[in-house]
Design a protein around this nucleic acid. Structure first.
Lengths: 298, 298
DNA sequence: TGTTATGATAAAATATATTTATATGATAAA
DNA sequence: TTTATCATATAAATATATTTTATCATAACA
């Protein structure tokens, strides 16, 4: 059996049209016919139903079943090639969500430079969800991911690194400015500035509003944390922000959440197990506890 | 790329000898040479280190990495073929550990016969660990497994069906015969009959003795539950047995475990997701709650 | 120093995949 | 109903890939 035949098959499942599939590969139509026949002979099952009302090509059950396996096989081969390329180029394809890249990763950089790993990193930015997907498909070797609940991913190992709290941030002019701690329920009537971040902040915010049965009044949404802080400072509204993104500047006042069941921003190291000493070294370096957190001097 | 080349490669990794590998496939030695060259050309990496003056063939890092992927690919293909065969024969390869087969499965049989599934089952007996392995390699479609902790298996879905307690069983002549409930720690000085079952009973027993810091005195070990009951009846010793294996016979007296952190015998339905209506039907039927448990009339 | 083990290479033989040209069969259009 | 069109199948020719046979190269071994 040939990988090419699997590619033809998978494409044909998408196209449902031999001629179109042949065109997609720039080959002649009978090539597809013969490829499918080869598969059907080798597997001893019929893969397609050649069409009662002849404008429709249908997959048999066996065809559906085999399509799943064929996709897994092609995925594995793609991943294998990508991994070998990264290995030979001594590059680690490293996924980093913007927030973690800005507020957490810099602390790790020192160690990585000292261990001579930094120059081997090929950093790819993206939201945690996107990066998870890329890990699974072999487009990434290692990633730092933000999460509010433990991650379980097929073929991916995860290692929680840090767990940080979410804080409520308010303007120094806000009535709550002297509060040390507050229940989220008490914020029912506040105006909120929302952070349009990949996944974690919106999910945490949603979790808190749902758990406390209220529909928050969101007056503004921004993807930029500094804009968000600025608006909170100007008392346009209050917001929810990971303590990760707070340093000891005085621009906004941070209040602890007193809720029992509150979400946490967890930074998780996720990677596909590979035979690659460089990756082992990176994972080892990253899983060492960081001295100071969240920030030196905080 | 060709699956055959992958097979040659994987075998060569095992053999570390081109001639031997060729013999294993009943082909000529240059065939292996050319197959490896094809792979190395296509992947653009060196897979083997040819013999640095010692008659030894070594895998490069890339070779090790690719070997993992090649094995996954071949595994997936094997599974695909097995699944298609089972599908076309309308057979569900169904794993059943002896204890569950004897003491739990009969209750399900009625439903399965009514739903016309029973005749499609090809039952394969084995310990829970063996059956797990066979699920992963595509030798089984569905299995009932015994477990004392939640199972997490790659590519396998699990669904807990029943959770039963372990009981301490003693002879009607035993001093403890009138006890309703007991802490396992109180059994420190008892003689035990041990059940040599696949996995769950020994693990549960070990968990209890370890948690209570004693080394049990095991006077006899048997794989046969009736023998075990007989010996307990004759007061040779006491034993630990899942309530699953107890019916309302008066041969032995069952005592509840009072321990806070006690193991439980969980029956878990485990299966590889497939495109197979028959399997869906079985899973659906098995996941319906069973009316009476553990036994009618208990 | 010859002998053996192990793998590489060239050329030929064989097997497999693809194309070109054409056929079939079913629907839609005239 | 005829004809045109679409979608796939088939046969034969061709192109490509794999395997074998025969032979060579190299290093270990005795």
């Amino acid at each position: 059996m040939n990988f090419r035949d699997l590619e033809y098959f998978v494409q044909l499942v998408k196209d449902r049209n031999y001629t179109k599939t042949a065109q997609a590969f720039n080959i002649s139509q009978p090539t597809i016919t013969y490829a499918i026949k080869r598969l059907e002979n080798e597997l001893k099952v019929q893969l397609f139903i050649r069409d009662q009302s002849h404008h429709q090509l249908d997959l048999t059950l066996a065809g559906q079943e085999f399509n799943d396996h064929a996709q897994n096989i092609l995925q594995e081969l793609t991943t294998a090639k990508a991994d070998l390329l990264a290995l030979s180029q001594q590059k680690i394809r490293f996924g980093l969500p913007p927030i973690i890249g800005t507020y957490y990763f810099p602390q790790l950089a020192k160690v990585l430079i000292k261990e001579n790993i930094m120059s081997h990193l090929q950093t790819i930015e993206g939201g945690s969800a996107t990066l998870q997907e890329k890990l699974s498909t072999g487009e990434l070797d290692v990633a730092l991911l933000g999460a509010i609940s433990p991650l379980k991913l097929k073929n991916i190992k995860t290692l929680p690194l840090v767990r940080t709290d979410f804080k409520v941030i308010v303007s120094p002019d806000h009535p709550l400015k002297n509060k040390q701690s507050i229940n989220f329920a008490a914020l029912k009537n506040e105006s909120f500035i929302a952070l349009k971040e990949g996944f974690v902040h919106p999910a945490a915010f949603r979790q808190l509003t749902t758990a406390n049965h209220f529909q928050p009044q969101i007056v503004y949404t921004t993807p930029d944390i500094n804009v968000l802080k600025g608006m909170v400072h100007e008392n346009v509204g209050i917001s929810l922000l990971s303590e990760l993104a707070l340093n000891n500047e005085q621009e906004v006042h941070a209040i602890d959440l007193a809720d029992q069941d509150q979400p946490h921003f967890e930074i998780v190291l996720a990677y596909r197990p590979q035979v690659n000493p460089l990756i082992d070294k990176l994972i080892n370096a990253l899983s060492q506890p960081v001295d100071q957190f969240p920030f030196p001097g905080k």
